[in-house]
Design a protein around this nucleic acid. Structure first.
Length: 572
RNA sequence: CGGGGCGUAGCGCAGUCCGGUAGCGCGCUUGGUUCGGGACCAAGAAGUCGGAGGUUCAAAUCCUCUCGCCCCGACCA
């Protein structure tokens, strides 16, 4: 490709709207352009990267027996009503009506479409298992798109769906994907942490996320510093030492400060873990107390999965009406008609402090078993940095930011049951197909690669996804010697089926070097009059400082060797 | 949805407080000089001042409404 003809609008200045490094470099190096909030145009250079990423994914999906297909993006409401997800997705779905006033939506994912296809076409256990995948555009009306392609409303996703006869089959399909994903991300040069995760609106049992550690990430994950424990903060647990204070009688104490744990603990000069934080929720129109230790917060994601999605924090007035006190001075003590759930870590604690249900008063000496009627102890807190690991003896949890690149779900029979996707097993009975669903966000993957491979001048593409492998930089094209040599190299590489980018623009060297470093093509071949007179070109890897002097006739074989070596780094 | 910021030439911005009919840098066009890390000189082209309404002799500037974008939070496979 000739730079002079290439549509590659690099920016000279830093786009100030961009905060995350991947966002900055995607815009600055002319890979993408914004059209509207959360929707981007993929320019030629960016599309090349996306194609390479897709190729890696296809290779690995095919390797595990995946069959690529293409599904509609435009879908009808009826399908989504069957799984109840027309409502569950809610506003996040792009919904509209056709000319006949029929409800349609742009598919945010394709479980329903796959399930519908399978129920129409799969009849017998003999036709199972199947592993179907698609790489295509999906739509989600995100409340807040952010970080360029980190969270967008129209995006490419590789989604695969496994159809199995039983749960053992599902386990196998799941394992296959686990391996394929590991290979895919390794080929892209990314280190990945696999974490246990919540399945949310997808449903199903086991769910694993493939996380790329990055400060740009929107997810928080809990990692143990001693063992392999890793979980999304939405589901991460801990095992705190129970607080066993002195057994004493409960006693009211005056606390004339704002009713936050922070303020009261400061006022009483008592550590926060001695407090029981009482929160009042309304679950299915009924008030419920939720108790957590003062130094931790409730995890509403856990709350939802245990107590159901229909919940909300109680309003100030409701709290006052029920307890007679402001939020901050409340507790279940003395309030018998409200169910109370406590975090498991509060089990057996005593000598605790909690609200007195009277403004500016707390109670001390609380023994949770003796003084509070607990309906059930449940895992309900958000894990914090330095909490003890729930899995090993002496590990400590560290919280890290991460970008979710892939997600594996064991859907089980959620969709096949509700949509009657049945097959006849060898015993003659009809059974629901056991399903799994496995996604990878393509643009996020691209952003993650940039996040990992960049320096202060620009991107350093790994050869596995690089838009071009070779960037020929003639220093001065008005010099015949330079021009001829670089053109000859260009033509030769083309004949070798390696398409280089050649900067044939009549620009000054510095200008070209800056663009070259910005767009980050792995191998730079610098052709200048000065060095040609001494009989060589300069070869430089973008990610290394050193330049190597190679005579023009040996450039081709030298560069091919270089590329071969670079490729090895990303082989699996 | 809450908080903050911003819409003026292709890009980045000044001008808005205090109203007088639009400017700077980069880029672009033409000519020339240059040419190993974002060159220089000269001449030029290019703007519904996001949109609508209002106040005024006069609005980028004041008022009302509205559309959009970005960032933080809430939310979110």
């Amino acid at each position: 490709m000739r730079f002079s003809k290439y549509f590659l609008p690099t920016l000279k200045e830093f786009p100030k709207e961009a905060k995350e490094i991947s966002h900055v470099l995607l815009l600055k190096s002319g890979l993408i352009k914004p059209l509207m909030s959360g929707v981007y145009e993929y320019l030629p250079l960016g599309l090349r990267v996306i194609k390479n990423i897709k190729a890696i994914i296809r290779e690995e999906m095919d390797r595990i027996g995946g069959q690529e297909l293409l599904l509609p993006v435009l879908t009808n409401r009826e399908l989504w009503d069957e799984s109840k997800r027309w409502d569950d997705f809610g506003e996040e779905m792009f919904k509209f009506k056709d000319r006949n006033k029929r409800d349609l939506c742009l598919a945010p994912t394709h479980e329903e479409i796959i399930t519908d296809l399978a129920r129409r076409e799969i009849q017998s256990y003999r036709e199972l298992p199947q592993l179907w995948y698609q790489i295509q555009t999906k739509f989600r009306d995100e409340p807040r798109p952010r970080g360029a392609v980190l969270r967008i409303r129209q995006f490419f996703m590789k989604d695969s769906y496994s159809l199995d006869r039983d749960f053992e089959g599902l386990d196998k399909s799941f394992e296959k994907h686990y391996d394929a994903y590991t290979r895919i991300f390794r080929k892209c040069g990314l280190d990945i942490v696999v974490v246990g995760a919540s399945s949310g609106v997808m449903g199903g049992s086991q769910s694993n996320e493939f996380m790329f550690l990055s400060e740009s990430g929107e997810d928080s994950i809990a990692l143990c510093d001693k063992c392999d424990y890793a979980a999304n903060i939405e589901v991460a647990t801990t095992r705190l030492q129970p607080i066993c204070g002195e057994k004493k009688k409960i006693k009211e104490i005056h606390t004339p400060v704002v009713g936050t744990v922070d303020a009261v603990s400061n006022f009483l000069k008592k550590p926060k873990e001695l407090f029981i934080k009482s929160l009042l929720y309304i679950i299915k129109n009924k008030p419920v107390f939720v108790l957590v230790r003062g130094d931790h917060d409730v995890n509403e994601n856990k709350l939802a999965s245990i107590l159901g999605f229909e919940f909300r924090p109680a309003h100030t007035e409701e709290v006052k009406e029920l307890t007679g006190a402001e939020i901050g001075y409340i507790s279940p003590i003395g309030i018998d008609n409200v169910k109370t759930y406590a975090d498991s870590n509060l089990r057996n604690s005593n000598g605790m402090i909690t609200g007195a249900n009277k403004n500016e008063y707390h109670i001390e000496g609380v023994d949770i078993t003796r003084d509070i009627n607990i309906e059930k102890f449940i895992d309900i807190i958000t894990v914090k940095n330095n909490d003890p690991c729930p899995q090993c003896k002496n590990g400590t949890i560290k919280i890290k930011k991460a970008i979710e690149l892939g997600h594996l779900f064991k859907l089980g029979t959620k969709y096949s049951k509700s949509m009657k996707c049945l097959f006849t097993d060898n015993d003659g009975t009809e059974k629901p197909i056991v399903m799994g669903s496995y996604g990878i966000g393509i643009e996020r993957l691209m952003a993650a690669v940039i996040d990992k491979f960049h320096d202060n001048k620009g991107i350093l593409w790994p050869v596995s996804v690089a838009p071009f492998l070779i960037h020929i930089i003639p220093i001065d094209i008005s010099n015949d010697n330079v021009k001829e040599t670089s053109e000859e190299l260009y033509e030769t590489f083309l004949r070798e089926n390696i398409e280089p980018l050649i900067d044939d623009r009549d620009e000054r060297p510095g200008f070209k070097f800056h663009d070259a470093d910005l767009i980050g093509i792995p191998v730079q071949i610098i052709v200048g009059d000065r060095s040609l007179k001494e009989g060589f070109c300069e070869i430089k890897l973008r990610h290394e400082e050193k330049k190597q002097r190679i005579s023009p006739s040996e450039v081709i074989s030298f560069v091919k060797k270089l590329i071969f070596q670079e490729r090895k780094k990303y082989e699996v």
